[in-house]
Design a protein around this nucleic acid. Structure first.
Length: 594
RNA sequence: GGUCCGGUAGCUCAACUGGAUAGAGCAUCAGCCUUCUAAGCUGACGGUUCGGGGUUCGAGUCCCUGCCGGAUCGCCA
């Protein structure tokens, strides 16, 4: 078991016995490495209960624990801090339970269901670096929630309809000459993206030409012929014009084929896909019903609005004067549809960039106004933009980092560095390729996940392909090392065991590894509660680092005492399994050798 | 202009939600491979936590204020 909870109980009892009062809270924190001990009780707040100064309070509690606690071996008081050192047998016991656990750190299913939305691209261009952060984040948060007992439904809403895809369609119709992904030998999403770029280029030229002839810019932007064509296609699509719908289906089909390849490369998948084309009309009904119920109001021009001024926001339009839906209308419909499809989910997590914070604030308020209780459990997992050293990604300036290209580069770089180190001499080609992929992708995912999701982050290509230091490959390497050690142990007939160590004194490096190991379940809980894979990335790095220190200074198989050998093998195995689990929560695979 | 984020070592990021002398990685410098994988380990260097007030036993963290950067405030999505 984890000594934390036990210790907490004992401290609470101590305070109750000594001072006759229960403390408001017990501040128990890890002891700073420069001091002796593993747990520190902060005694400043307790002086109110004890009526003595913090240092005296610490001493009294320390003495009491020494006499009564089953785990405290000694203590030190530094100012108002009570540093506790536990008996090594408590740590041995801790490792014993960790080692025996079949799924250490993972909670069994609680029966609660939850939905996580991520990715949700438009279908007019390929995925880019921003989508990678989104996907890795959404995937990892799904894993984290599962690890905390939820049954998770991973979904996305594919924005397959609207003026953006019509732009690509218009350009293809004008300049495509029947080109297909096959004839062009390009992934479908990239092909469609090329036509989106072609549209933009032609459009701007046409607008400039019209302005040149004396037309006001605003008018020119509407009347440029290629824009007229795109708008006409949108109208025809909504009218279900067969030819337009067929083109739309064809080009979206290309995009999906391309996306599938990218998703497979990223290692993500979804349980259910929602398409905007199938949901965009649903919100309208709900809004009209809300209008009848007096939740919304209509202006003279016929448009429908919600008044959120009482909530500190503004009035927002929900239906245009012509009765058509706006963006948020379909989001209302999609949300309701999802709760109908999955009646057992307690809530929904939207993984969407922080530029849409206002949008989701409004959406959740509207859903609450409509009387949906689950609106309280809708959460916008808002993450910061990914910047490049050159600044923001701008499609106009061609600085967008393409997801497929980036993944390929990471894998190439992993191959290059792996070959330089001569690590693949005994591998088959197939094994080697799988390893490059694992390392390249591991580096990329770890790089994007180690930063607090809420924060804007910088993507430095040179740093992302680093395989040393605070990186995914460092952790993967530690795992491979452990696996190699365990293979050797097995070959030598050594079995792992935590038996026969009742009065042992541990090496500091051994104890430190167990201490870090013991914190894993709490970190999983915390990461789930705050939707933050970064906590797991930081943790698993700390664990790997701690283990490497142990590995470097303490012999395992060459140790003379067979009891200690078995113990260290068990310790190594527990660390290896925990690394694997933690990395799985990040969506990263770990190799057997590298 | 209103609202919301952010500003920590040369660079990229932490800091257990108010606790001890603010920690890692990269970069730079110096060491460690005849012993389980050196993608590793050890050490050195590096800080007015944007500035200024305040709250208290204690502030990078909370409050006020100023400066800088970003997002947002569409009948776009």
């Amino acid at each position: 078991m984890n000594p934390d909870t036990l210790l907490r109980d004992e401290i609470e009892q101590a305070i109750l016995a000594l001072f006759g009062k229960a403390p408001e809270s017990i501040q128990l924190q890890p002891t700073n490495p420069e001091f002796e001990g593993s747990h520190t009780l902060v005694c400043f707040p307790l002086s109110r209960v004890s009526g003595k100064n913090p240092a005296e309070t610490a001493k009294i509690i320390g003495d009491y624990l020494l006499a009564h606690s089953s785990v405290v071996a000694s203590y030190q008081v530094v100012k108002g801090f009570l540093n506790l050192t536990l008996h090594d047998h408590a740590w041995v016991k801790t490792l014993e339970t960790i080692y025996a656990a079949s799924n250490y750190g993972i909670q069994p299913p609680s029966g609660e269901e939850i939905m996580v939305e991520f990715s949700s691209p438009n279908t007019n261009k390929p995925l880019h670096l921003g989508h990678l952060r989104n996907n890795f984040l959404g995937w990892s948060v799904s894993q984290l929630l599962e690890a905390n007992g939820y049954k998770v439904h991973k979904v996305q809403i594919i924005n397959d309809r609207g003026i953006h895809i019509c732009k690509s369609m218009a350009a293809w119709k004008l300049y495509g000459d029947g080109e297909t992904p096959k004839t062009a030998n390009i992934k479908g999403d990239h092909l469609v993206g090329n036509y989106y770029v072609a549209f933009d280029k032609a459009y701007r030229a046409q607008v400039a030409a019209l302005v040149e002839k004396g037309m006001p810019k605003e008018q020119a932007e509407k009347e440029a012929p290629i824009m007229q064509l795109a708008s006409e296609m949108l109208r025809k699509w909504e009218a279900k014009d067969p030819e337009t719908v067929a083109l739309w289906e064809k080009m979206n089909g290309w995009v999906y084929e391309g996306f599938d390849i990218t998703y497979r490369a990223m290692g993500v998948s979804f349980d259910r896909l929602y398409y905007e084309s199938q949901t965009y009309l649903l919100g309208k009904e709900i809004v009209l019903k809300g209008l009848e119920d007096g939740i919304f109001f209509r202006k003279e021009d016929g448009s429908v609005w919600v008044d959120l001024r009482a909530e500190g926001l503004d009035e927002k339009v929900l239906l245009r004067a012509d009765g058509t839906s706006v963006y948020i209308t379909q989001d209302i419909g999609t949300a309701v549809l999802r709760f109908n499809d999955f009646p057992n989910i307690v809530g929904q997590i939207y993984t969407v960039g922080n530029e849409q914070e206002y949008h989701f604030k409004v959406l959740f308020l509207i859903l609450a106004k409509l009387g949906y209780a689950w609106a309280q459990r809708c959460y916008h997992l808002s993450y910061g933009m990914v910047d490049l050293p050159s600044g923001k990604m701008k499609s106009r300036e061609g600085t967008v980092v393409d997801a497929d290209d980036l993944i390929a580069e990471m894998i190439d770089e992993a191959e290059k560095q792996t070959r330089e180190l001569g690590k693949v001499d005994e591998m088959t080609d197939e094994e080697a390729r799988a390893l490059y992929r694992m390392i390249g992708l591991g580096a990329l995912k770890f790089f994007l996940l180690k930063v607090d999701p809420k924060k804007r982050m910088l993507f430095n290509p040179n740093e992302s392909i680093q395989l040393q230091g605070f990186t995914g490959p460092f952790v993967q390497y530690t795992h491979a090392r452990i696996r190699a050690l365990l293979r050797k142990a097995e070959a030598a007939g050594v079995t792992a065991s935590v038996e026969g160590l009742d009065n042992v004194i541990l090496e500091p490096a051994e104890r430190e590894v167990i201490i870090v190991l013991s914190r894993f379940p709490e970190r999983v809980r915390e990461a789930g509660a705050t939707y933050s894979p970064a906590l797991i990335a930081n943790y698993v790095y700390e664990l790997a680092k701690e283990y490497n220190q142990f590995y470097q200074s303490i012999p395992v198989l060459s140790e003379a005492d067979p009891v200690r050998v078995r113990f260290r093998v068990a310790l190594s195995e527990a660390v290896g399994r925990t690394i694997r689990t933690a990395m799985r929560l990040l969506g990263i695979d770990v190799p057997e050798r590298m």
